[in-house]
Every structure is written in C-alpha cells, then in structure tokens.
Design a protein around this nucleic acid. Structure first.
Lengths: 111, 111
DNA sequence: CAAATATACCTAAGTTTCTTATACATAAAA
DNA sequence: TTTTATGTATAAGAAACTTAGGTATATTTG
C-alpha cells in the first residue's frame, strides 16, 4: 500500500495551513493531525517534515519556540507575519491547481 | 509569474487521462490541450513532457505511432491495455489526493 | 523578403522535494 | 522487559521537475 499520493510541493502548504488554523504546532503534532484529518490515508514522513520546517524557518515564514514538556523537547512553530501573507498565496495556488486538475480530469463538470 | 503549480507527480496522470479521452495524441498537442483547458494557467514544459512520455512508453503504458504530417514528424501516443487499467488507478489516487487536500485546506466543507 | 513565431521533436545539467534508513532519547504500555 | 509511542534530527539516494540548450520545417508579420 504505497504512500497514497502526497504530491510533491503540497507539504509546505499543508504545514502553513495547519499553523494558520491552530496558531502553533510542533512537528510530531503535525504528522498526527494530518493522519487524523485524512483518516490515515496521508502520512507525513519525518524525513520530509523536519527539513521542510527548517527550510520554512530559514525563509522567515515560520518562527520557533522551544519548550520542554514531560522531560521531552518540543519545538513549536508558528507563522511569522511574512508567513501569514505567503500562506494566502499558497492556498490560492493550491486551489487553482485543484481547479485545473478537475478541469482536466472531469471536464464535464467544469462550465 | 511562476509556473502556477504543477504539483509533481500529476503530469503522468494528466497525460494518461487526456489519452484515455482522445484516443491518441502527440506531444505538442498535449501541451496545447492542457494550456487550453486551464485557460493558460498550466503550462507543460517540453523538458518535463518528453521524458515523461518516454518513460510511460518504456513501462508499457503507452505505445507510439510515428507519422509525417506537413513534412514534420509527429509521434502519436495511445494507451496500451495495461495503460488503460493503470489510468483507472491513477485517477482514483489523484481524486483521493484532492479529497485529502480539501479536508485539510477547507475542513468546514468535509463532513 | 527577412525575421519572428508556431509547430514538432529531443537531451543534459542542475534543483527541489521527497523516501528510506538511521540515530538519539524519554515515557508508557504490553 | 521489550515494544510502542512520543519527539527530534540528518544523510544518501530517487524521482520529477526547471532551465537551457539543440535541430528542423512552416507560417506569419513587419
């Protein structure tokens, strides 16, 4: 049962959208949230997630707050102001992609 | 104006879906068709298209017929039997991806 | 008529984004 | 006590693109 289609390029948008909603989240929490929302169909691997978070932080779209909970480390991420603006763009792009794909895949529905 | 979101992994499915509909198409025709359907928003680059066609052919999902039209070469591609079956799977996967993305991006709509 | 654009194919180098595998560490459950 | 869950991280490799070329003919435009 292959990883059921996480199309490349969508991960960043997923992260940013969840952070926009929730305010702040830590990495592991994001993986669990995605799994829950998609009823187990979509699994974010750690090898994809952590580099993505670090890159978004490096780009100034996320900022991090480190906390210790239950003697274990957590890195909470939240959107910066720049990140908030960029989230709007990326969501618009994703929605455009979805519209385009539906025009191709289901041409009868797109008038 | 960046290339407006061709999420990686979707190109093969686009090609296969168009061939399923049209019966057979040649490369250049595919690029024009996609541009037309998406009102210019989605452009398939040749550097992506031709390697993708060759790979699908190598995998036995497409077969090719070469023709000369107006003194110019055309390579018409069509789905093999195996390609037809696989198209069903890929479309299902793409639709699942779209459902999952909508669950994430627009949680209020997904009951 | 010359130059640009459209049609039609192709590949190579580099980048991005993932998967897979591994590593470290603590807490809880079997 | 061993496995599973929680929590982070990186390195090597694969896959799928972009960018930038190359070749050639037909048509349109200035």
């Amino acid at each position: 049962m292959k990883n059921s289609a996480l199309y490349k390029g969508s991960l960043n948008t997923i992260i940013m959208k969840l952070l926009e909603e929730k305010g702040r989240m830590y990495g592991y929490e994001i993986t669990q949230k995605v799994k829950a929302i998609t009823l187990g169909e979509l699994t974010i691997t750690e090898g994809a997630l952590y580099p993505a978070l670090h890159k978004l932080e490096a780009e100034g779209l996320l900022e991090v707050e480190v906390e210790k909970v239950d003697n274990r480390l957590r890195k909470y991420y939240k959107l910066t102001e720049k990140g908030n603006k960029e989230t709007v763009n990326r969501l618009a792009e994703l929605e455009e992609f979805i519209r385009n794909m539906q025009s191709i895949v289901n041409p009868k529905l797109s008038y």
